[in-house]
Write a protein that binds this DNA or RNA. Structure first.
Length: 301
RNA sequence: GGUUCCGUGGCCGAGCGGUUAGGCAGAGCUCUGCAAAAGCUUCUACAGCAGUUCGAAUCUGCUCGGGACCU
């Protein structure tokens, strides 16, 4: 019999992960853990292409509707939760499926993140405010002074990374570099990874069609109801940001819709770039179920 | 038929004698706590032909294409 196994199904958005995972879960009589940084929010539905309620009834899902947009969610939190669920589920199942397109979350699940202390909310806020008021030059100067090592190695034009380095330094007195040991964690189960490969042109067409579909099934109403929360991180999401612009009168509805399509295509492209360098991942372009099952059933421990 | 304006890379758009404008799209990429985020790289065009000039996308002429106005 096969060792306890986590089967990861990934791929760009609109590549058909959800359906495949569902089919596989039914076949193996197991559960699905989503690895999607947006589908975990119960307030977000249409715009994040969440599985339908009937699909959610057919197979038990984790990390879907598990959080509120007001909660803090990040890769580390995902890692902890997902490992916990896997341990529990693998006690009673031989396999668990992880399905999603958030590459960083999958990486965190597979090899873990280094332990970095939780940052005080006040420190984070102060840094963000300073950056917004004083700009990138201030951020660069500060990091160069406080953490020259990171400044040398880091991405100096990427405010997020610079602020991250700064908050770790201010909060712990140590450089973020000193926390990075890059030790890959060893998991207590086998992990096999698959990526769904769809020809670029076809994928882009699917994306366009899916956006039209979302609009027809009430995306605009969903976005209207979330307007008060537009500044939350969870709402910095393709499909929502663009419609906020329309609702604020900054553009026409048609412009928003084509921006959603455009941004989703760009997003899919970034996902593929991320997935491409994952050497554990096996690309599938057909016969998905059988090929996954063949790998699953081949015992090589 | 006449007068006049315009013609810049896939698209938008500045330049108006001598640097790569720039933006978007496309393509490639980075990536350990906001990742559907954030950032980086790349794509050398001036409708065509002839001329002026050391040098033209920029000036002149003609041709082609488009718009506006006049008869």
């Amino acid at each position: 019999m096969s060792p306890k196994t986590v089967i990861i199904i990934s791929g760009p958005t609109a590549s058909g992960k959800t359906e495949l995972a569902l089919e596989l879960a039914k076949h193996l009589n197991t559960c699905i853990i989503s690895a999607d940084s947006r589908q975990c929010f119960r307030e977000l539905n249409i715009g994040v292409a969440k599985p339908s309620s009937s699909q959610l009834e057919e197979v038990r899902h984790f990390f879907i509707n598990s959080h509120s947009i007001h909660d803090e969610v990040n890769a580390s939190i995902f890692e902890t939760l997902a490992i916990g669920w896997c341990d529990e589920l693998l006690a009673v199942h031989d396999a668990v499926i992880i399905c999603g397109g958030t590459g960083l979350y999958i990486k965190a699940f597979r090899e873990g993140l280094d332990e970095i202390p939780v940052i005080d909310e006040g420190i984070r806020k102060r840094i963000l405010e300073s950056y917004e008021n004083l700009g990138l030059a201030w951020l660069q100067d500060t990091v160069r002074t406080i953490d020259p090592g990171f400044y040398e190695s880091g991405e100096r034009f990427n405010p997020q990374r610079m602020m991250r380095a700064l908050e770790v330094m201010q909060s712990t007195g140590r450089s973020i570099l000193s926390f990075r040991n890059r030790q890959k964690k060893i998991r207590s189960f086998r992990i096999i990874e698959f990526g769904l490969s769809v020809p670029r042109k076809e994928l882009y067409q699917r994306i366009d069609a899916r956006v039209d579909d979302m609009m027809n099934t009430g995306l605009l109403d969903e976005v209207i109801s979330l307007l008060p929360y537009q500044n939350l991180n969870a709402l910095q999401t393709v499909g929502y940001s663009e419609l906020f612009e329309y609702l604020k009168g900054k553009c026409l509805l048609e412009e928003s819709i084509s921006r959603i399509k455009q941004n989703t295509r760009n997003y899919a492209k970034r996902q593929m770039t991320w997935l491409k360098k994952n050497e554990h991942l096996v690309w599938l372009d057909n016969d998905f179920m059988n090929r996954i099952l063949a790998t699953y059933q081949s015992v090589k421990v």
